[in-house]
Design a binder for these strands. Structure first.
Lengths: 171, 171
DNA sequence: GGAGTGGGTTCTGAAACAGAACCCGGTCGG
DNA sequence: CCGACCGGGTTCTGTTTCAGAACCCACTCC
């Protein structure tokens, strides 16, 4: 019986943080559900209609998100006792992931160029997403990231691509 | 507002950019493969060992990533003709997604607190990720985002969370 | 010419997804 | 007080996808 984890350990130990996350969010729907919730959708049927997701799947996804603290189920009325699903603080904290995904989709994803632009509310300028160093007080791109253990992240191919400067953020 | 949706349509029109992306990246492995690639892994067997992914799955994932322009398959030697997989520019541009995911995992994901910290290479300070307005020359958090059409993103529950100031970036 | 290496494919069987259809407590209109 | 309706699900079917062994093949090295 292939129970949870064998002696063997699944190869990459210590990867677990993000692996664990992807076990929750790593399917075609969970992220879209969070996105819908960020747009203000809260009720079961509205998620259904908005996403076109099958109801049983929505049930399991919502339950999983609740179990993992991304959403909460709260009653919004008694008597015909009704519930709705809201993002927790942790759920809202997924915004950067969502934004990064949306922006990547627009630039590289191939879909229609989107009908929505994300802007900085106070001034209306389209936002960018950047890595920020509080010491240097500067933004920077992926090639300036190192992982403290376990070797560099963003170590790009040395020769192959007729690739990009990338010294600053990709825009 | 739940407008009457056309019968045929896959429910949410105009969502397609991110939906399309999640059809490529929205599974438990694709993102991890990109992450491994960012760490410098390039060869089939190395992906296998590092991720603990089954070989047939790796085959299909790699093919899909190549088809969608996230990776390329290049020969790194003739004669015992051998290939490796590298990120394209589009693939490297996924870094913000990865970083956002890693950071969220560490703060809210529940896994072990990670063995790797991501730092700004030049100075070694742990990086932060922020939304950046080039006009205002400032960083800001998710509540300061608006979507230009289709209603606000980051419209949080009105009452529920004993929430966070978030006027500045999220720690 | 036998073992090894890189990069796969072909089998299995288990799990996840997708869609109708059904259910159930409540409220409303007549 | 009976039937229709609504929100929020669960149960039934398939159909894909996942996962793991095992196998394959071109090539090199010894």
């Amino acid at each position: 019986m292939p129970t949870a984890y064998d002696p063997g350990m699944p190869a990459s130990t210590s990867e677990s943080a993000i692996e664990h996350t992807l076990r929750v969010l790593g399917d075609r729907w969970s992220i879209l559900i969070v996105r819908a919730a960020l747009r203000g959708i809260r009720r079961f049927d509205d998620f259904c209609d908005d996403l076109g997701i099958a109801r049983p799947i929505l049930t399991t996804r919502l339950r999983r998100l609740v179990d993992h603290g991304v959403m909460v189920k709260v009653a919004y009325q008694e008597h015909p006792l009704r519930h709705e699903y809201r993002l927790t603080e942790a759920g809202i904290a997924l915004s950067p992931v969502l934004v990064a995904l949306v922006r990547w989709s627009e630039e590289h994803g191939g879909g229609p160029s989107s009908t929505t632009a994300l802007v900085h509310a106070p001034c209306g300028t389209e936002l960018e997403q950047a890595f920020w160093c509080r010491r240097c007080r500067t933004t920077f791109g992926p090639t300036a990231i190192r992982g403290v253990e376990r070797g560099p992240i963003g170590d790009p191919p040395e020769d192959p691509s007729p690739d990009v400067p990338l010294g600053e953020r990709p825009h």
